[in-house]
C-alpha cells in the first residue's frame, strides 16, 4: 500500500504532508483495515447499479427463498428478491443519509460552536443549555419523535440526524475553542483589527480541525446506526426501498425460512460501523496523539 504513495514523494509542501499523513494512518493495521473497508463501501455506493446483478425490487417467485450460492452470494428473500443486489443498492442510501446528515451536523455544529464559545457570556450559555436539553434525550427516541411528528421522508431523516448530532459536534468544538481563544496569537489578531469571521475561521478553526475530523468519523458511524435503526422501526426509509434496517425488519418474520436475508444486511451494517470506528480511532492517534 505504501509503495505507490512513496513514489509521489516529489510533490512539495502541503501535498507531501498529506501523503505522510496517509502513510502514518496506513501503518496501523486496524486503521488501514477500517479505512480500506470504508473506501470499498464508498465505491459500492457510487457504482451500485453497475455491481448489482438484479434490480432492487426485481421479484422472481420461482427463485424465492434460495440459500446463498455462487449465483446469488447472499441468497434471495421470501419475495424472490436478490439479497446481494439489495444490499449493494442500499449502500448508496445509507451513505447519502448518514453521510450528508453528519456533514450537516458538523457544519452547523462547528459554526455555532465557534461563535457561541468565542463570544461567550449569554450567547454561549443559551446555546449550550439548549444543546444539553437535546442531549438529555436518547438520539433514537428523539429521532422517532421528530419523524413521528413530521412524517418519515429522506429529507426528514437527514435533518433529524443533523439535529441530533449538532450538540455533540458543538461541544467538541467548544472544548478546543475554550483553550485556544485565550492564546496570545488570537489577542494579536484582535490587535490587528481582524474581523470576527477571520479570527474564528482563519486563526481558531485550524486548531479545531483534528478533533473535528475524528468526531466526524465517529458521528458518521453512529449516523449509520441511527439510519438503520430508523429503517428497522419503520420510521425512516419506507418500503420497498432497499434500506438495510428495513431489510432486517422485513426478513425478521421469515427468519426460520430465510435467515440469510436477515444475517447479511445485519453483518454489513456491523462491518461498516466497525470499520468507520477503526478509521476514526486511527485518525485520532495520527491527528491528536501525534502518531
Amino acid at each position: 500500500m505504501t509503495a505507490p504513495l512513496a513514489s509521489v514523494r516529489g510533490a512539495r509542501g502541503r501535498g507531501v504532508r498529506r501523503l505522510r499523513f496517509l502513510r502514518t494512518l496506513y501503518s496501523r493495521r486496524s486503521a488501514a483495515f477500517g479505512t480500506s473497508v470504508v473506501l470499498l463501501f464508498l465505491l459500492v455506493a457510487l457504482a451500485g447499479p453497475l455491481l448489482a446483478p438484479y434490480g432492487a425490487n426485481e421479484q422472481d417467485f420461482s427463485e424465492a427463498r434460495r440459500p446463498p450460492s455462487l449465483e446469488r452470494p447472499f441468497g434471495s428473500d421470501h419475495l424472490g428478491r436478490d439479497v446481494f443486489s439489495r444490499v449493494v443498492l442500499g449502500t448508496r442510501d445509507i451513505f447519502m443519509l448518514a453521510g450528508f446528515g453528519t456533514l450537516l451536523a458538523v457544519f452547523v455544529g462547528t459554526v455555532v460552536g465557534l461563535f457561541a464559545t468565542y463570544l461567550g457570556g449569554l450567547v454561549e450559555e443559551i446555546a449550550f443549555r439548549l444543546f444539553d436539553s437535546v442531549l438529555a434525550m436518547p438520539a433514537l427516541l428523539f429521532a422517532l419523535l421528530l419523524l413521528g411528528t413530521f412524517g418519515p421522508s429522506r429529507t426528514n431523516v437527514l435533518i433529524v440526524i443533523a439535529v441530533a448530532y449538532v450538540p455533540i459536534v458543538a461541544r467538541v468544538v467548544r472544548s478546543v475553542v475554550v483553550a485556544v481563544k485565550t492564546r496570545e496569537y488570537v489577542a494579536a489578531a484582535r490587535m490587528q483589527g481582524e474581523s470576527l469571521g477571520y479570527i474564528l475561521f482563519r486563526e481558531i478553526l485550524p486548531a479545531v480541525l483534528p478533533a473535528l475530523a475524528v468526531e466526524s468519523a465517529l458521528r458518521f458511524s453512529y449516523a449509520i446506526f441511527l439510519v438503520a435503526s430508523l429503517g428497522f422501526l419503520g420510521a425512516g426509509v419506507q418500503p420497498p426501498n432497499p434500506d438495510w434496517g428495513l431489510m432486517i425488519s422485513e426478513a425478521r418474520t421469515f427468519v426460520g425460512l430465510t435467515p440469510w436475508a436477515l444475517y447479511f444486511p445485519a453483518a454489513v451494517i456491523s462491518l461498516l460501523v466497525v470499520s468507520v470506528n477503526l478509521m476514526a480511532d486511527g485518525l485520532k492517534t495520527v491527528l491528536q496523539e501525534g502518531g
Partner: peptide
C-alpha cells in the same frame, strides 16, 4: 478603535509559544 489607532499601538506577549499561530 479604528485602524490608525490599532496601527499606532501594538503589544508583544510573554509566551513565545502561544504568540504565533502554529498552523500558519
Amino acid at each position: 478603535r479604528d485602524r490608525p489607532v490599532l496601527r499606532r499601538l501594538q503589544m508583544v506577549f510573554q509566551n513565545a509559544d502561544e504568540a504565533l499561530n502554529p498552523y500558519l
